[in-house]
Design a protein around this nucleic acid. Structure first.
Length: 487
RNA sequence: GGGGCCGUAGGGUAGCCUGGUUAUCCUCUCGGCUUUGGGAGCCGGAGACCCGAGUUCAAAUCUCGGCGGCCCCA
């Protein structure tokens, strides 16, 4: 390989996003989100930069949850006796549980599971916490790690043996209807969260065979990744009184009777960050909404010999002013050349860049560029106000939201023949009419090599297809379903 | 469950078949000079053969075992 070739390879070191799998793998490392070199399969290390992004994203999630939940913390270890109480629930997880079997060299009488999810840690305590109707509703959440022994291909932030950032909420209500109301509320929270990240989603009720083990029903948020596969990025479960019966969680009504409670739980994991990276990123790296960028604004000085002082002086004036507005801003005065810095900060998703050289000093101006558009324009120092930056941030988010939605829409199509669905499978989401029978579901999944995501809980306005229609397999009464290959 | 491939610096690699001098190249990193409006250049430095046993005068290279990773099929 000649030096010339080596150099051009370096220039394209981030693979094109067309090759999504490789792009994702590389951008996670190069942008310093996760270090994938930890010597256990499926476990990854958050770099400081990645962890900062995590804090910003989860900060928003916390802000939303804190409105009417209390934050709690339950233990990571669950005794086997509790974990196995709910038959259907444990069946859903038994092949994926990590067990703690020894204390030192002494085998434990009761094995301890590393939580694969926390219902069986939390609900025995709910039994103690809930006595009277006056204790209801009870709404808590925690942000914790969970463990699952994944045997398939693991991938940073997407398929993990340790989920490091599982936000799980658990609520307890007097009646099925009240719990159902909470399901609606939770869906509203998740919409707000993903709208904040400008990530488009589909809200879908999972088929019977794919609901959360132990739930009455499951509503999921799915987004469509650049390769056409869907990724589940949030779930809301109505548990009815299923767990209440198992864990004997009852309350005393106003007239002294004892009733089982009704519960919900809903969760979002670090897949929300995988989606953020994947949905908005481009060939140069991360593209992040202004509010979620660890570095919102980067100032790049263009230094010519003898003019360094005046250029840096203007840079510092800008730095001081923008910092005063309360934004996360960096003056990159390292001794790389400006071009190298542009690439570096584009890779890391700095939302706005300000360039300052001798020309700007002479004119008292600053050159501005937005990460999503990458066009440059010039404004006077007088125009550089907090209001202006807020306006830019809002416009940028709207551009990102619209672009992401358009990309998703292109990957979703309606079909009325199995042959056509088969051709489309692997490229995106197919919408079909399907009846409720397991047989027709199995047949379709097998034929096209995808998974049935379920029916729309809320059908977006931009989808024309009718909700009702003849089943694509048997011709019977069917409903609009989505089918896709999934992460 | 069955089959295949691979472990060489922080990252990516050549060398292994056919054993032999100081282990190749790119990147990263450190020091210096120089340069700076889209990944500059030159000079100098640092950094690696997964672990164990065996064969041999001699092992990154061959053999066996271990550990780790990846892929395909069911």
């Amino acid at each position: 390989m000649s030096v010339q070739e080596a150099k051009s390879e370096r220039l394209e070191s981030l693979p094109s996003k067309e090759n999504f799998s490789e792009w994702y793998h590389e951008v996670i490392q190069q942008a310093e989100i996760m270090d994938i070199r930890y010597p256990v399969k499926g476990l990854y290390v958050w770099y400081p930069f990645g962890f900062r992004l995590r804090q910003l994203v989860y900060g928003k999630l916390r802000e939303i949850m804190d409105r009417d939940h209390n934050e709690v913390y339950f233990p990571a270890l669950i005794p086997e006796t509790e974990l196995e109480k709910e038959g259907e629930h444990i069946k859903g997880f038994e092949n994926e549980v990590y067990w703690v079997t020894h204390g030192g060299l002494t085998p434990l009488d009761v094995k301890l599971a590393l939580r694969p999810t926390s219902e069986t840690a939390i609900y025995p305590m709910f039994k103690l916490w809930v006595r009277s109707h006056a204790d209801l509703p009870l709404k808590v959440y925690q942000i914790v790690n969970t463990f699952r022994y994944e045997t398939k291909h693991t991938r940073a932030l997407i398929r993990l043996r340790e989920i490091t950032s599982f936000k799980e909420a658990h609520t307890v209500h007097a009646t099925f209807e009240e719990a159902e109301k909470q399901v609606r509320t939770a869906i509203g929270y998740y919409k707000e969260f993903y709208d904040f990240l400008a990530i488009p989603y589909l809200i879908i009720r999972r088929p019977e065979w794919d609901k959360f083990p132990g739930a009455a029903y499951t509503v999921a948020f799915d987004t469509v990744m650049p390769d056409g596969r869907t990724m589940q990025i949030g779930t809301v479960h109505h548990l009815a009184n299923n767990f209440a019966r198992t864990f004997d969680i009852t309350y005393e009504t106003a007239n002294g009777e004892h009733e089982f409670v009704h519960q919900t739980c809903y969760g979002i994991s670090e897949r929300c960050i995988a989606a953020l990276i994947s949905i908005h990123g481009d060939d140069l790296g991360l593209v992040l909404p202004f509010e979620a960028s660890p570095v919102q604004i980067v100032i790049i000085p263009v230094l010519y010999k003898g003019r360094e002082g005046e250029v840096l002086e203007l840079c510092k004036r800008i730095l001081g002013r923008v910092k005063g507005f309360g934004y996360r801003v960096i003056l990159d005065d390292s001794d790389e050349r400006p071009g190298a810095k542009y690439y570096k900060w584009e890779l890391k998703g700095a939302a706005m860049r300000m360039e300052v050289g001798p020309r700007e000093v002479a004119e008292n101006t600053v050159v501005v560029s937005f990460r999503d558009e990458r066009k440059k324009f010039k404004i006077s120092m007088k125009e550089l106000t907090k209001e202006k930056i807020e306006e830019w941030a809002a416009e940028m988010k709207e551009r990102m939201r619209r672009a992401a939605l358009n990309r998703m829409r292109e990957k979703i199509r309606y079909f009325d023949s199995v042959t056509e669905v088969k051709k489309w499978a692997g490229r995106g989401v197919a919408l079909v009419h399907l009846c409720s029978s397991t047989e027709c579901g199995d047949t379709l999944e097998e034929e096209v090599g995808g998974s049935i995501l379920g029916r729309f809980e809320e059908k977006p306005g931009w989808i024309d297809a009718d909700v009702d229609g003849g089943c694509i397999v048997c011709g019977g009464k069917g409903y609009l379903n989505a089918i896709a290959r999934t992460y």
